[in-house]
């Protein structure tokens, strides 16, 4: 067991200051349909409009964080979403992500790093469509 592992103040600062390239994703009808099927939600609402958690698909690759090598396992702690303009088929969404907080805490299995990853999503008109704050626990 590696009970003594820890995240240095330098590593923490490097994460907080990380410049993460924006993600860009066209919202495709087939993808929206497959996503709705995958969550088992057959509402006709999701023909032209994307379901509320659809933009999660833009975060498939988590921002690179070599500082967290000693904490290889991951738990999803939860998400806070706020919504603006609807996300509809044909939109092109840009997601800008940053590490909003990075804190080390002990959990049952030993030292863990709690990360809050915030992504702000806008559409091709520059309108704000959503902000997601995702809490990840690395241990």
């Amino acid at each position: 067991m590696t009970q003594d592992k820890s995240l240095s103040p330098e590593a923490r600062r490097a994460l907080m200051e990380r410049d993460i390239p924006p993600a860009v994703m066209p919202v495709e009808r087939g993808h929206v349909r497959r996503f709705a099927e995958a969550i088992g939600d057959g509402s006709e609402r999701w023909t032209d409009t994307a379901p509320p958690t659809f933009l999660r698909a833009m975060l498939s690759e988590l921002p690179s964080a070599p500082e967290l090598e000693a904490f290889p396992q991951m738990l999803d702690g939860g998400s806070d979403w706020e919504y603006g303009a609807p996300v509809t088929v044909g939109d092109t969404i840009t997601g800008v992500t940053r590490f909003a907080s990075v804190n080390q805490r002990n959990i049952g299995v030993g030292p863990a790093v709690f990360l809050q990853i915030e992504t702000r999503y806008t559409n091709q008109q520059g309108e704000w469509v959503a902000t997601q704050k995702n809490t990840l626990i690395r241990y």
Binding site: I39, D41, P51, P52, T53, D76, S79
Partner: peptide
């Protein structure tokens, strides 16, 4: 997936 449970709870509301 946690995010799948997130989608399930969203469906209750929508």
């Amino acid at each position: 997936h946690g995010a799948l449970k997130n989608a399930y709870l969203a469906q209750v509301v929508t």
